[in-house]
Amino acid sequence: MSFLSGFTDSDLWHSFIRTPTALVSALLTLILIAGALAAPLVAPHNPFDLASLDIMSAHLPPVWMKDGDPAFLLGTDDQGRDVLSAIFYGARISLLVGFASVLLAVLIGVTLGLVSGYLGGRADAAIMRVADVQLSFPAILIALLIDGVARGVLPREAQEHMAVYVLVFAIGISNWVQYARTVRGAAMVESRKEYVQAARIIGIGPVAILWRHILPNVLGPVLVIATINLALAIITEATLSFLGVGVPPTTPSLGTLIRIGNDYLFSGEWWISIFPGVVLVLLVLSVNLLGDWLRDALNPKLR
Protein backbone atom coordinates (compact mmCIF):
# COMPACT_ATOMS: atom_id res chain seq x y z
CA MET A 1 0.00 0.00 0.00
CA SER A 2 2.66 2.44 1.01
CA PHE A 3 4.53 1.46 -2.14
CA LEU A 4 1.48 2.21 -4.26
CA SER A 5 0.78 5.56 -2.66
CA GLY A 6 4.49 6.30 -2.98
CA PHE A 7 4.16 5.61 -6.67
CA THR A 8 1.04 7.67 -7.28
CA ASP A 9 2.68 10.50 -5.40
CA SER A 10 5.90 10.27 -7.42
CA ASP A 11 7.01 12.72 -10.07
CA LEU A 12 7.02 9.93 -12.62
CA TRP A 13 3.35 9.19 -12.15
CA HIS A 14 2.52 12.85 -12.07
CA SER A 15 4.38 13.49 -15.29
CA PHE A 16 2.59 10.50 -16.81
CA ILE A 17 -0.94 11.69 -16.14
CA ARG A 18 0.00 15.23 -17.15
CA THR A 19 1.47 14.24 -20.52
CA PRO A 20 -1.28 13.58 -23.08
CA THR A 21 1.06 11.87 -25.53
CA ALA A 22 2.22 9.47 -22.83
CA LEU A 23 -1.37 8.64 -21.89
CA VAL A 24 -2.54 8.20 -25.46
CA SER A 25 0.45 6.12 -26.49
CA ALA A 26 0.19 3.93 -23.39
CA LEU A 27 -3.49 3.40 -24.12
CA LEU A 28 -2.79 2.58 -27.77
CA THR A 29 -0.01 0.17 -26.85
CA LEU A 30 -2.29 -1.56 -24.36
CA ILE A 31 -5.10 -1.87 -26.90
CA LEU A 32 -2.76 -3.31 -29.53
CA ILE A 33 -1.24 -5.76 -27.05
CA ALA A 34 -4.67 -6.79 -25.78
CA GLY A 35 -5.93 -7.26 -29.35
CA ALA A 36 -2.93 -9.36 -30.22
CA LEU A 37 -3.20 -11.50 -27.10
CA ALA A 38 -6.89 -12.05 -27.61
CA ALA A 39 -6.52 -12.69 -31.35
CA PRO A 40 -8.41 -16.03 -31.35
CA LEU A 41 -11.31 -14.39 -29.52
CA VAL A 42 -11.67 -11.16 -31.47
CA ALA A 43 -10.51 -12.08 -34.97
CA PRO A 44 -13.48 -12.80 -37.24
CA HIS A 45 -11.67 -15.66 -39.02
CA ASN A 46 -8.81 -18.01 -38.33
CA PRO A 47 -6.32 -17.38 -41.11
CA PHE A 48 -4.31 -20.49 -40.21
CA ASP A 49 -7.21 -22.85 -40.61
CA LEU A 50 -6.54 -24.01 -44.15
CA ALA A 51 -9.95 -25.68 -44.36
CA SER A 52 -11.78 -22.40 -43.95
CA LEU A 53 -9.79 -20.66 -46.69
CA ASP A 54 -11.63 -20.26 -49.95
CA ILE A 55 -9.64 -19.31 -53.01
CA MET A 56 -12.82 -17.83 -54.42
CA SER A 57 -12.73 -15.09 -51.84
CA ALA A 58 -9.10 -14.17 -52.59
CA HIS A 59 -8.15 -10.62 -53.61
CA LEU A 60 -11.30 -9.03 -52.20
CA PRO A 61 -10.99 -5.29 -51.48
CA PRO A 62 -12.07 -3.66 -48.19
CA VAL A 63 -15.75 -3.57 -47.49
CA TRP A 64 -16.31 0.08 -48.46
CA MET A 65 -14.97 -0.43 -51.96
CA LYS A 66 -16.76 -1.92 -54.95
CA ASP A 67 -16.81 -5.75 -54.73
CA GLY A 68 -16.15 -5.59 -51.00
CA ASP A 69 -17.55 -8.42 -48.88
CA PRO A 70 -18.98 -7.56 -45.43
CA ALA A 71 -17.47 -10.79 -44.08
CA PHE A 72 -14.01 -9.39 -44.78
CA LEU A 73 -13.86 -5.88 -43.36
CA LEU A 74 -10.40 -5.03 -44.64
CA GLY A 75 -10.46 -7.33 -47.66
CA THR A 76 -8.55 -10.56 -48.31
CA ASP A 77 -5.11 -11.55 -49.58
CA ASP A 78 -4.08 -13.77 -52.47
CA GLN A 79 -5.10 -16.95 -50.62
CA GLY A 80 -8.43 -15.64 -49.44
CA ARG A 81 -7.25 -14.91 -45.89
CA ASP A 82 -9.09 -12.14 -44.07
CA VAL A 83 -6.64 -9.24 -43.77
CA LEU A 84 -8.11 -8.05 -40.44
CA SER A 85 -7.75 -11.47 -38.83
CA ALA A 86 -4.29 -11.90 -40.25
CA ILE A 87 -3.34 -8.56 -38.66
CA PHE A 88 -4.54 -9.72 -35.23
CA TYR A 89 -2.52 -12.91 -35.48
CA GLY A 90 0.40 -11.15 -37.14
CA ALA A 91 0.66 -8.52 -34.40
CA ARG A 92 0.81 -11.40 -31.95
CA ILE A 93 3.92 -12.83 -33.57
CA SER A 94 5.49 -9.38 -33.96
CA LEU A 95 4.96 -8.60 -30.27
CA LEU A 96 6.09 -12.04 -29.16
CA VAL A 97 9.35 -11.75 -31.08
CA GLY A 98 9.78 -8.15 -29.93
CA PHE A 99 9.32 -8.80 -26.22
CA ALA A 100 11.24 -12.08 -26.20
CA SER A 101 14.24 -10.65 -28.01
CA VAL A 102 14.35 -7.55 -25.80
CA LEU A 103 14.21 -9.82 -22.76
CA LEU A 104 17.08 -11.88 -24.12
CA ALA A 105 19.15 -8.79 -24.90
CA VAL A 106 18.45 -7.31 -21.46
CA LEU A 107 19.43 -10.52 -19.69
CA ILE A 108 22.70 -10.87 -21.59
CA GLY A 109 23.52 -7.18 -21.62
CA VAL A 110 22.76 -6.39 -17.99
CA THR A 111 24.62 -9.45 -16.69
CA LEU A 112 27.71 -8.80 -18.77
CA GLY A 113 27.54 -5.07 -18.07
CA LEU A 114 27.38 -5.60 -14.30
CA VAL A 115 30.25 -8.07 -14.33
CA SER A 116 32.27 -5.82 -16.59
CA GLY A 117 31.64 -2.64 -14.65
CA TYR A 118 32.06 -3.98 -11.14
CA LEU A 119 34.92 -6.41 -11.61
CA GLY A 120 36.84 -4.47 -14.24
CA GLY A 121 40.21 -5.88 -15.25
CA ARG A 122 40.45 -8.73 -17.74
CA ALA A 123 36.78 -9.72 -17.72
CA ASP A 124 35.92 -6.13 -18.53
CA ALA A 125 38.52 -5.88 -21.28
CA ALA A 126 37.37 -9.10 -22.93
CA ILE A 127 33.67 -8.25 -22.82
CA MET A 128 34.22 -4.73 -24.08
CA ARG A 129 36.45 -5.84 -26.98
CA VAL A 130 33.70 -8.19 -28.18
CA ALA A 131 31.20 -5.37 -27.74
CA ASP A 132 33.40 -2.99 -29.74
CA VAL A 133 33.72 -5.39 -32.65
CA GLN A 134 30.01 -6.08 -32.62
CA LEU A 135 29.22 -2.40 -32.38
CA SER A 136 31.07 -1.74 -35.59
CA PHE A 137 28.25 -3.60 -37.32
CA PRO A 138 24.65 -2.45 -37.44
CA ALA A 139 22.27 -4.70 -35.53
CA ILE A 140 20.25 -5.53 -38.62
CA LEU A 141 23.31 -6.91 -40.36
CA ILE A 142 24.17 -9.16 -37.43
CA ALA A 143 20.60 -10.38 -37.24
CA LEU A 144 20.68 -11.14 -40.97
CA LEU A 145 23.95 -12.97 -40.58
CA ILE A 146 22.72 -15.12 -37.69
CA ASP A 147 19.64 -15.87 -39.73
CA GLY A 148 21.79 -16.87 -42.69
CA VAL A 149 23.93 -19.12 -40.53
CA ALA A 150 20.83 -20.74 -39.06
CA ARG A 151 19.68 -21.52 -42.58
CA GLY A 152 22.99 -23.18 -43.32
CA VAL A 153 23.09 -25.16 -40.10
CA LEU A 154 19.47 -26.20 -39.48
CA PRO A 155 17.94 -28.94 -41.61
CA ARG A 156 15.48 -27.57 -44.12
CA GLU A 157 12.40 -29.15 -42.56
CA ALA A 158 13.20 -27.68 -39.13
CA GLN A 159 13.68 -24.17 -40.46
CA GLU A 160 10.04 -23.26 -40.62
CA HIS A 161 9.00 -24.00 -37.07
CA MET A 162 12.33 -22.86 -35.67
CA ALA A 163 12.01 -19.52 -37.48
CA VAL A 164 10.57 -17.62 -34.51
CA TYR A 165 13.27 -18.88 -32.14
CA VAL A 166 15.99 -18.06 -34.65
CA LEU A 167 14.57 -14.54 -34.98
CA VAL A 168 14.41 -13.99 -31.23
CA PHE A 169 17.95 -15.22 -30.88
CA ALA A 170 19.20 -13.15 -33.83
CA ILE A 171 17.55 -9.90 -32.72
CA GLY A 172 18.39 -10.47 -29.05
CA ILE A 173 22.06 -11.15 -29.74
CA SER A 174 22.35 -8.18 -32.08
CA ASN A 175 21.11 -5.75 -29.40
CA TRP A 176 22.80 -6.72 -26.13
CA VAL A 177 25.76 -4.37 -26.55
CA GLN A 178 23.85 -1.19 -25.79
CA TYR A 179 22.63 -2.55 -22.46
CA ALA A 180 26.04 -3.88 -21.57
CA ARG A 181 27.73 -0.56 -22.26
CA THR A 182 25.13 1.49 -20.42
CA VAL A 183 25.04 -0.83 -17.43
CA ARG A 184 28.82 -1.07 -17.36
CA GLY A 185 29.17 2.71 -17.31
CA ALA A 186 26.51 3.10 -14.65
CA ALA A 187 27.92 0.24 -12.59
CA MET A 188 31.38 1.79 -12.71
CA VAL A 189 29.98 5.11 -11.52
CA GLU A 190 27.91 3.45 -8.81
CA SER A 191 30.64 1.13 -7.60
CA ARG A 192 32.94 4.09 -6.97
CA LYS A 193 30.28 5.77 -4.89
CA GLU A 194 30.69 5.77 -1.18
CA TYR A 195 27.60 3.73 -0.38
CA VAL A 196 29.19 0.77 -2.15
CA GLN A 197 32.41 1.35 -0.22
CA ALA A 198 30.36 1.44 2.96
CA ALA A 199 28.85 -1.94 2.07
CA ARG A 200 32.29 -3.36 1.37
CA ILE A 201 33.62 -2.03 4.66
CA ILE A 202 30.78 -3.80 6.43
CA GLY A 203 31.99 -6.98 4.73
CA ILE A 204 29.21 -7.64 2.21
CA GLY A 205 30.30 -9.80 -0.73
CA PRO A 206 30.41 -8.81 -4.41
CA VAL A 207 27.33 -10.76 -5.51
CA ALA A 208 25.16 -9.22 -2.80
CA ILE A 209 26.55 -5.76 -3.58
CA LEU A 210 25.77 -6.16 -7.27
CA TRP A 211 22.31 -7.48 -6.61
CA ARG A 212 21.18 -5.32 -3.70
CA HIS A 213 23.06 -2.09 -4.24
CA ILE A 214 24.16 -1.62 -7.83
CA LEU A 215 21.46 -3.31 -9.89
CA PRO A 216 18.53 -1.25 -8.51
CA ASN A 217 20.47 1.92 -9.26
CA VAL A 218 21.22 1.14 -12.90
CA LEU A 219 17.77 -0.11 -13.88
CA GLY A 220 16.40 3.33 -14.86
CA PRO A 221 18.40 3.72 -18.06
CA VAL A 222 17.90 0.01 -18.84
CA LEU A 223 14.15 0.52 -18.75
CA VAL A 224 14.40 3.46 -21.14
CA ILE A 225 16.62 1.59 -23.59
CA ALA A 226 14.43 -1.48 -23.37
CA THR A 227 11.33 0.50 -24.28
CA ILE A 228 12.98 2.16 -27.24
CA ASN A 229 14.56 -1.16 -28.24
CA LEU A 230 11.19 -2.87 -28.15
CA ALA A 231 10.14 -0.57 -30.97
CA LEU A 232 13.41 -1.29 -32.73
CA ALA A 233 13.04 -5.05 -32.26
CA ILE A 234 9.53 -4.96 -33.73
CA ILE A 235 10.87 -3.01 -36.71
CA THR A 236 13.77 -5.43 -37.11
CA GLU A 237 11.48 -8.43 -37.04
CA ALA A 238 9.20 -6.83 -39.60
CA THR A 239 12.18 -5.93 -41.77
CA LEU A 240 13.64 -9.44 -41.68
CA SER A 241 10.27 -10.95 -42.42
CA PHE A 242 9.77 -8.47 -45.21
CA LEU A 243 13.14 -9.44 -46.67
CA GLY A 244 11.97 -13.05 -46.63
CA VAL A 245 14.38 -14.28 -43.97
CA GLY A 246 12.06 -13.98 -40.99
CA VAL A 247 8.78 -15.63 -40.13
CA PRO A 248 7.48 -17.88 -42.95
CA PRO A 249 4.20 -17.02 -44.77
CA THR A 250 2.35 -19.94 -43.14
CA THR A 251 2.35 -18.15 -39.75
CA PRO A 252 2.74 -14.57 -40.94
CA SER A 253 3.85 -11.65 -38.79
CA LEU A 254 3.04 -8.06 -39.77
CA GLY A 255 6.26 -7.91 -41.81
CA THR A 256 5.41 -11.10 -43.67
CA LEU A 257 1.95 -9.74 -44.47
CA ILE A 258 3.46 -6.58 -45.93
CA ARG A 259 5.82 -8.70 -47.99
CA ILE A 260 2.94 -10.77 -49.37
CA GLY A 261 1.02 -7.62 -50.25
CA ASN A 262 4.06 -5.96 -51.80
CA ASP A 263 3.76 -8.30 -54.82
CA TYR A 264 0.25 -7.02 -55.51
CA LEU A 265 0.96 -3.34 -55.03
CA PHE A 266 1.21 -2.64 -58.73
CA SER A 267 -2.06 -4.36 -59.55
CA GLY A 268 -3.76 -1.85 -57.27
CA GLU A 269 -4.40 -4.27 -54.37
CA TRP A 270 -2.84 -1.91 -51.85
CA TRP A 271 -4.87 -3.07 -48.85
CA ILE A 272 -2.91 -6.30 -48.34
CA SER A 273 0.24 -4.31 -47.51
CA ILE A 274 -1.06 -1.03 -46.23
CA PHE A 275 -3.33 -2.18 -43.37
CA PRO A 276 -0.69 -4.34 -41.69
CA GLY A 277 1.73 -1.47 -42.34
CA VAL A 278 -0.52 1.02 -40.55
CA VAL A 279 -0.87 -1.27 -37.54
CA LEU A 280 2.89 -1.80 -37.48
CA VAL A 281 3.53 1.95 -37.54
CA LEU A 282 0.93 2.61 -34.83
CA LEU A 283 2.50 -0.04 -32.63
CA VAL A 284 6.05 1.21 -33.11
CA LEU A 285 5.04 4.85 -32.83
CA SER A 286 3.20 4.40 -29.56
CA VAL A 287 6.04 2.38 -28.05
CA ASN A 288 8.51 5.03 -29.22
CA LEU A 289 6.41 7.81 -27.73
CA LEU A 290 6.29 5.95 -24.45
CA GLY A 291 10.05 5.47 -24.53
CA ASP A 292 10.61 9.15 -25.29
CA TRP A 293 8.42 10.23 -22.45
CA LEU A 294 10.06 7.77 -20.07
CA ARG A 295 13.52 9.04 -20.97
CA ASP A 296 12.53 12.65 -20.41
CA ALA A 297 10.69 11.86 -17.20
CA LEU A 298 13.55 9.87 -15.69
CA ASN A 299 16.09 12.42 -16.86
CA PRO A 300 14.54 15.80 -16.13
CA LYS A 301 17.63 17.79 -17.05
CA LEU A 302 17.30 16.73 -20.69
CA ARG A 303 14.04 18.57 -21.18
Binding site: A238, I258, F266, V281, V284, L285
Partner: peptide
Protein backbone atom coordinates in the same frame (compact mmCIF):
# COMPACT_ATOMS: atom_id res chain seq x y z
CA UNK B 1 11.18 12.74 -36.67
CA UNK B 2 9.14 10.50 -34.40
CA UNK B 3 7.22 9.25 -37.39
CA UNK B 4 10.53 8.86 -39.22
CA UNK B 5 11.98 6.74 -36.43
CA UNK B 6 8.81 4.70 -36.20
CA UNK B 7 8.42 4.01 -39.93
CA UNK B 8 10.47 0.98 -40.93
CA UNK B 9 12.66 1.75 -43.93
CA UNK B 10 10.96 -0.83 -46.11
CA UNK B 11 7.57 0.63 -45.36
CA UNK B 12 8.74 4.11 -46.33
CA UNK B 13 9.90 2.60 -49.59
CA UNK B 14 6.57 0.90 -50.20
CA UNK B 15 4.62 4.08 -49.43
CA UNK B 16 6.81 6.12 -51.78
CA UNK B 17 6.42 3.51 -54.51
CA UNK B 18 2.68 3.51 -54.02
CA UNK B 19 2.47 7.30 -54.15
CA UNK B 20 5.01 8.27 -56.80
CA UNK B 21 5.10 5.07 -58.80
CA UNK B 22 1.60 3.63 -58.74
Amino acid sequence: SLVGVSLPTFLIGILLILLFGV
